[in-house]
Amino acid sequence: MATQQVICAGFGGQGVMSMGQLLTYAGMIEGKNVSWLPSYGPEMRGGTANCSVVVSDKPVGSPIITDATTAIVMNLPSMIKFEKDLVKDGILLINSSLIDKKPSRDDVKAYFVPANEIANELGNAKVANMVMLGAFLELTKTVEVDSIVAALKKVFGPAKEHLVPMNKDALERGAAAVRA
């Protein structure tokens, strides 16, 4: 596989950190080399949050991403901040529920996913991140959806196993949103 360098970004509470962690966890389950690096620092409530995930069949070099193969942006400030870090023909996954602008670059592949609307239809606004993750997996096949589900079970633990089906639905709806 080619090395996937993924930036997940949004505002605090949108689940961008856990989206990145699930992808990292799933990569590890599949025996791939992975790293997860969060932004850290002083931040106000509702401020921006992002993490960098590398999934590769080779040992991970720098955990910092300067040439992203994909950026998953959950709000407008994140798109403005990170679209410039994409490689040419990189994937820009845009949460069109909260971003009403087009990206400024025309040399990247932009996909618009109304993640919040889809999550609300599923009955839980919190799974918007899983909708975006589902779209990402459909486009890149970085890991199997089953591995994400296995990771979910490990991260949630048995007490929250009942949330797994809804998360699976969210992954599937996200995939459907970008299926041509």
Partner: peptide
């Protein structure tokens, strides 16, 4: 450095 402290790896 802070990266070692904050990042996750297997």
């Amino acid at each position: 450095d802070g990266m070692i402290g904050q990042m996750m790896e297997p």
